[in-house]
Amino acid sequence: MDSTYTILIADDHPLFRNALFQSVHMAISGANILEADSITGLFDLLAKEEPDLLLLDLKMPGANGMSGLIQLRCDYPHLPIVVISASEEPAVIAQVKRHGAFGFIPKSSDMRALVNALNQVLEGNMFFPETVADFGSEKNRLAEKIASLTPQQHKVLGMLSDGLLNKQIAYELNVSEATIKAHMTAIFRKLDVKNRTQAVILIQQLESETQ
């Protein structure tokens, strides 16, 4: 495929990032390829560039589970994002889809599969493995609960799972403790839990699917 596409690769593993760089070059002749190895570096690039496609690894410095994808979707709602991940669980793929990604490509994909996926996405078609259709009902319910959180609520839940107290979370997010308590109430309602412990157990279940 000949094009002047600008493709942004965000992955913290140099070897895989280089392999993906070479794969994209082979798939898309003449593409302008940019690279980022952290969430901070990614947002710095996005402040200066307008890529046609972002290839995003879920696990990078500065990202907590789906938080990077959620923040990107919030700040850049029109940017096509394709997650490329070593996690191939249906639960992960379903989460990625629900959080607004345009596609999901397993890192285990061979060159032909990668080229096919990239071509489909650049032609405007979403690309997800068929396994997402077989997503179990229990995991599906958990995915929907987590996906119902706002970006700010997701941040609060992430800090909660890290063991931070309400006042610590309030300090980190530069809001009042009352605001955090309101977020907690909304989070508990959306996740259908009664306390912090139950909420942490749910987020740990989700994170275990992305290992």
Score class of each variant (00 low, 15 high):
158 G>S: 05
124 G>M: 04
113 A>M: 09
17 R>N: 10
210 T>L: 15
163 G>H: 07
111 M>N: 13
143 A>E: 05
18 N>K: 12
67 S>Q: 09
138 E>G: 13
124 G>W: 01
196 R>M: 08
160 L>G: 05
38 S>T: 12
64 N>Y: 11
101 A>K: 03
49 E>W: 07
197 T>K: 11
59 K>R: 15
64 N>M: 09
10 A>F: 04
98 R>L: 15
121 V>A: 02
54 L>R: 04
98 R>M: 15
179 T>S: 10
181 K>G: 07
38 S>Y: 05
38 S>Q: 07
123 E>L: 12
104 F>H: 03
108 S>V: 11
162 D>M: 15
37 D>F: 10
161 S>A: 14
155 K>A: 14
174 N>P: 05
84 I>H: 05
207 E>H: 15
53 L>Q: 01
131 T>Y: 07
137 S>W: 11
15 L>M: 11
97 K>I: 09
79 L>Q: 01
167 K>P: 08
65 G>T: 00
80 P>V: 04
49 E>Q: 15
184 M>H: 10
162 D>S: 15
31 A>E: 02
89 E>S: 15
120 Q>K: 12
125 N>T: 09
199 A>H: 00
140 N>H: 14
160 L>Y: 03
158 G>E: 03
45 L>E: 11
29 S>L: 12
89 E>P: 07
140 N>K: 14
17 R>K: 14
57 D>H: 07
9 I>R: 03
182 A>T: 11
12 D>W: 05
206 L>P: 02
35 E>N: 14
14 P>Y: 07
31 A>N: 06
41 G>S: 06
175 V>R: 01
191 L>F: 01
8 L>Q: 02
65 G>C: 04
78 H>V: 10
174 N>W: 06
84 I>C: 07
202 L>V: 14
33 I>E: 05
144 E>N: 12
67 S>R: 04
188 F>E: 08
152 Q>R: 14
157 L>M: 06
170 A>Q: 02
148 S>F: 00
147 A>Y: 02
39 I>E: 08
159 M>W: 06
170 A>E: 02
210 T>P: 04
199 A>N: 00
62 G>V: 01
105 I>E: 04
160 L>H: 02
98 R>N: 15
27 A>I: 06
166 N>Q: 13
178 A>M: 10
28 I>G: 02
184 M>R: 12
98 R>G: 11
34 L>F: 07
204 Q>C: 09
18 N>V: 08
48 K>V: 10
131 T>V: 15
72 L>T: 01
99 H>S: 06
100 G>I: 01
196 R>G: 06
148 S>I: 06
182 A>Q: 13
99 H>K: 05
87 S>I: 03
